[in-house]
């Protein structure tokens, strides 16, 4: 069986140290989750880069579409009142 037919793509997430979230590091091909995890250990944490790994089948990820980027994210653009700098506060009021 060829690699093409048999080995799905996995996305690899590494937690660099306790207290930090897992961050996307890259991807690799592997026949199953266990092998993906072992290969990710060898490929992405050869120098102590992580204390925990997630492997996720790339096919299982649902991503926002670049086509709909505008319609999807623009609604947040005109809501400036969600930011603290929007508000007029007297300059001599402290701790606000």
């Amino acid at each position: 069986m060829s690699e093409r037919a048999g080995w799905p793509l996995w996305e690899i997430f590494v937690r660099p140290k306790r207290g930090l979230s897992h961050v996307h590091a890259g991807s690799l091909h592997a026949p199953d989750a266990e092998m993906a995890l072992r290969n990710a250990r060898d490929l992405y944490t050869r120098r102590g880069e992580g204390v925990s790994l997630w492997v996720v089948r790339a096919a299982d990820i649902t991503a926002s579409s670049p086509q709909e980027r505008g319609a999807f994210f623009d609604p947040a653009d005109d809501k400036v009142y969600r930011h603290p700098t929007f508000y007029d506060i007297p300059a001599d009021v402290e701790y606000l």
Partner: peptide, 13 residues
């Protein structure tokens, strides 16, 4: 090796 890994994964699945 690649074939064995695929066969193992299929059996496991």
């Amino acid at each position: 090796v690649r074939e064995a890994a695929v066969a193992y994964a299929a059996k496991h699945a």
